[in-house]
Structures are given as C-alpha cells and as structure tokens.
Design a protein around this nucleic acid. Structure first.
Lengths: 233, 233
DNA sequence: AAACCATTGTAACAATTCGTAAGGATTGAG
DNA sequence: CTCAATCCTTACGAATTGTTACAATGGTTT
C-alpha cells in the first residue's frame, strides 16, 4: 500500500510479466496494461510514481501520452522502446521523459534506473494549474475555488478529479461511462453512484441552484455537460 | 543567468574534445580534465552543475569519486563508461550517479540526457543548505528553523528529511510512496503511520493551524503538497 | 392524463484515510 | 549501566469518500 506504484504500458505480454515479476521482487507495486486506454483509465484512480511506457503502442500516440504524464501528472516517465535510433531517444527525452531504455533490456538495470529517478524529485509544476470560468477561479495546486469577491472554497481530491475533467472538456457531453473509466478505472460492477455524489457535492460548492444548474447540466440518460467558458493558465 | 557548467573527466583527449565541442555548441560552459586530481582541485573553485565522469581513470577510484560528487557536492553525475556490463551500470546508479552512458555514445544523446537531468534540479547537499520560504529560513546544516523575527526552532533529523523533500518539490503532489523511497527507501513495513507523525510534528514547528494548514496540505487519498515559495541558497 | 419504470439527486450511514497524543524501543553519550 | 533524546508504534478521534436508501425527476406506455 505504501510501496511505490510502477505502471507498465507495453503491448507484449511477456515483457509485462517479466517487468512485473522483477519489480514486485524489488519492492514495488505494479500495474500493467497492454493498451493506452485502459492505462489512462487507471491513472485517475491513483497517480503512479513511475510509468514505464513502450512507445510502439497500437491505440495511441505514445509521445503525446508521455508528454501529458510528465507535465501534468508529475510522474517519473521512463520510455522503454525497441526503437534504437538516437533521434528517437533525443525526442523522447526532450518531450519530458526522464529516461529512455532500449529493448532488449536487463531487468536489474531497469530497477536501478527507476531507483535513481525516484531519488531526485521533480520541479514544481509551472503551468496548467489554474482555470477561470464564469466568475470562478480553480486553483488545482491549492485545491481551492475562488469566486469573484476573492472568497475561497476548498475542494477535495475527488472533487478536483471531476472538476478537472469538466474543465478540460467544456461544452461537450461527457458520458457516465467516460467518467467512470476516466476517474474510477475498472471499478465496482454494481452501479457506482459515487460519481453522482461527487457531482452533487461539486455543484453545492459551485453554488448551483439544484433546480436549474447553470454550469454542470445533466443530460438525462446520456451524461453531463459543463457549460462554462474556460481559460486555462 | 550564467550558463550551466559541465565538467568532463575522461583520460582520452579525443573524447574530451568531442564532448567539449558539442556541449559548448549546446549552450553549456565546459571544463575538462584528464586526471581526477586536477578535477578535484577545480571543484573547490566552482561547483559544476553536471559532471561527466569516466570510471576507468588512472589515478583514483572512480566510483568513490562519483559517490562523493553526488552526495556531497549535489551535482548531477553522469557516468560515461566503456564498461558495458549490467552490473557496472547498476552499481554506478546505486552509488548515486544520475545516469550511465555507454561508450561509444552519440553526442546528441549526451546533450539530451544532460538536459533531462537539469530539468529536475538536484537538491543542494553540502553547499546551499539553506532554504527560505514564506517567512521561514531552514538551516539544514544546523537543523534549525528561523522565523522572521529571528527566533529559532530546532528540528530533528527525521523532520529534516521530510522538510527537505517538501522544499525540493514545492507545489507538487508528493505521494506517500514517493516519500518512503526518498527517505531512506528501505522496506520497513509499517512505515505508513510514522510518516504521518513526522509531518504532524513538522506542522507543529511551522506553527500551522491544524484546521487550515497553509504550507503542508493533505490531499486525502493522494499525498501531500507543500505550498511555499522556496528559494535555496 | 395517469400509471409506470428508469435515471438522477442527495441525505444518512459506513468504510477508509489521516492527525496526533502517549508509550515504548532504539540509539548514543557519559 | 543510566539517562536523555529521538523516533517508531499503537490507539483513538476526526475528516473525507464511497455506499445505501429513498425521494424527485424524466421519459414511456396505457
């Protein structure tokens, strides 16, 4: 539970198994995925400390994923790739990866490099932490909402996940299933009303009129739409 | 702002010249040495930001040097070695090196890896043991916190580890798992509550309001964020 | 329109996670 | 060995979040 979480994203099951074994042995918690979508779904549940990513994935642009991981999530990102070209390594590192390991790799070296990265912390996130919308300013670094008069309303981590999802996709329908996977991962099978409760609590903090919400609108049978005009800074 | 200083320690003149050229081109200041003794003499003058070290040096034990550089000087240490054995890399990284590049190397990759390391600045270890933040000055050499009025509050070693971790990564979510590895890392199992206690004591010394902490914020289920504006010196 | 079912809102409760006081184990100095 | 300092462990109260239950709402059928 308190061991560092390492996520493995690679489409080869053998690689996943090898890494899982050696990392568990080394005292890490592991989660492995073969597809980027499943991986992203799990991200919100618990931010991993280290992400091992293979770039040659079938269903996404790996470099974009690396960029988002490194900058927004603040995780240590290590690319593991069969592409041995120097240019690949350089661009991978420039995009924010913390290390680049070439296949075939030695498991012991992977462990050593992970440990080396965990020793030195990452710099503070400089941007992408604040969003303004309709009289509110959301400070995701401080977990605080600020209204026009400067009054502050704190929000929790669970609420921040929902709010961030809305603010990243304003004026677009977000289905319940989308939220579920985006926030809860492969959660409980029986209906997860936790999402509704999160949104309910968020609405309260945004001082929405329950009868006539202006910002978070419910689309019966489909999902939710966030109707604010969002500016990130 | 001055350009980052990269020192090159390698007994092959050609390698030194190649690295010097490419690093100067990339916007770094460089100093190169063929012997460890000359290198150490130069250390006293100005601590480099990055040290490129070849392990197979004639006049010293390279690994010891790496260890001292990494721990005492707080520089980024990158080993460049012809020894390709995995075990060499693992021990090099475990001794505190931040990266390990194998000869023959591509200059562009060396530059990319240096840049990647400089993105996350290493904590100043022996030089620069003082950090200022929000009305406080932390003296890690004396284990003392000083407030604006000059009043001093001593803190213990355990507290200093936590505080240092926070001051190195301000405004970033730090997971408990991350803390565990950063603070000694060994697999003491029920470490979880001890961490809470450390933070609790630190908060008391920083005179935080337990109901509304301004500096060390708890993110339920996720970790902690230190919200100070930190300047190291 | 009324009746009916599906979906959503939310209050109340339970489970989980966190804060911290108190006591005991460990370490180091004399 | 004793004492003192430090730090881990334990234990219990507090805060946050998920779950359940039921009311309210929207849509559909009769």
């Amino acid at each position: 539970m308190t061991r560092p979480l390492v996520t493995i994203l690679d489409d080869e099951p053998e690689i996943r198994r090898l890494l899982t074994d050696v990392l568990e042995e080394a005292g890490f918690e592991t989660l492995s995925f073969g597809r980027a979508r499943a991986f992203e779904a799990a991200l919100a549940k618990r931010t991993p400390d280290v992400c091992l990513v293979d770039l040659s994935l079938p269903d996404t642009d790996g470099l974009t994923l690396v960029h988002r991981l490194a900058l927004e999530q603040g995780a240590v990102v290590i690319i593991i790739s069969g592409r041995a070209q120097v240019q690949d390594r350089v661009t991978g590192l420039e995009l924010g990866a913390d290390d680049y390991i070439i296949k075939p790799f030695d498991p012991a070296e992977v462990v050593a490099r992970i440990r080396a990265r965990l020793r030195s912390p990452k710099p503070p996130a400089s941007s992408g932490n604040t969003a303004r919308f309709n009289g509110w300013t959301a400070h995701f670094d401080r977990y605080v909402l600020q209204d026009d008069t400067g009054e502050e309303v704190p929000f929790s981590h669970a609420e921040s996940e929902v709010l961030r999802l809305f603010l990243e996709s304003p004026k677009r329908l977000i289905s319940r299933a989308q939220m579920q996977t985006s926030l809860g991962g492969a959660a409980s099978e029986s209906f997860d009303r936790a999402m509704d409760v999160r949104i309910s609590r968020l609405r309260t903090k945004l001082r929405e009129d329950p009868k006539n919400p202006q910002l978070i609108k419910t689309i019966y049978g489909a999902g939710y739409i966030f109707l604010g005009d969002v500016t990130w800074s």
